[in-house]
Simulated assay, not measured.
Amino acid sequence: MDIVKHLKKHTEQIHSQLLNTSVEERMLLKTITLRFYFLLPDFDNIVRKCLKINIDKDQLVSDIIDGHLEKYQKPVKKSNAEIDEYADDFEEAEQMEIFILDAIDNATSSVADLPSLERLFLGIIDVLDYYENFSDQPEYWNGLLDKELPFQIEFLNSIKSPENVDSFSYQKRYEDVDFSEV
């Protein structure tokens, strides 16, 4: 799939769909998409190493729903402030670290911050694209990527009936995918 060709249109569709969501729907969407990132390799260790916090995934989801986000926002802000790419000892973050830290940042931002929710969805595409480009099975990852774009739009259409939305949709969708290090 030529992701660049489709990404602009897809981003516009996501934006359009998210504009009409309520606060409750946005919180639900943040927690559902975040569960995808929980599946990435070394999630807990990356959060511990980079943000200097131990994370309980269930508590994080609960805190997003309840709006108790400061305990996550402060470490993210501090971590971002400590990055000095011109320092002699600067070490560029690994791509998996970037995916996970961006997901935590976006998931714990204000529900009024619509671009952060968009970035959670687009980040899933970025992860799949990364695996397509750097794994030894590009066709497999391309197949997942081909299915992900329409899935996101269908999923966003279904959110209008929250009683039919499974909070573990993304986790179930990708639980059998091997997100090994590449």
Rank of each mutant, 00 (worst) to 15 (best):
F179D: 04
T33V: 13
N20M: 12
S161A: 09
V76G: 04
K30W: 11
S161P: 01
I100P: 00
Q59A: 12
L145M: 01
F134W: 13
K147H: 07
E97F: 12
L39T: 03
K5R: 11
I124S: 08
H10R: 02
F99A: 13
E94F: 08
I55K: 00
E139R: 13
I124T: 06
D176H: 07
D63S: 11
F134N: 00
T11P: 02
D84E: 10
L18E: 09
K30A: 04
L34S: 10
M96N: 15
E148K: 15
Y131Q: 10
E132Y: 10
P115H: 09
I83L: 14
D113M: 08
I104S: 07
I46G: 01
Q73E: 07
A93D: 13
K52G: 05
F151P: 02
Y131E: 03
V182T: 10
L19F: 03
K71A: 08
D56I: 02
P115R: 10
S161V: 13
R35H: 09
V23C: 10
S169P: 01
N106I: 00
D176P: 01
V76P: 00
Y37H: 10
N106H: 15
E94Y: 14
S158C: 04
E154C: 10
L117M: 10
K57Y: 01
I83C: 14
E175I: 07
N45K: 09
P75H: 06
K5W: 01
K147F: 06
N133T: 12
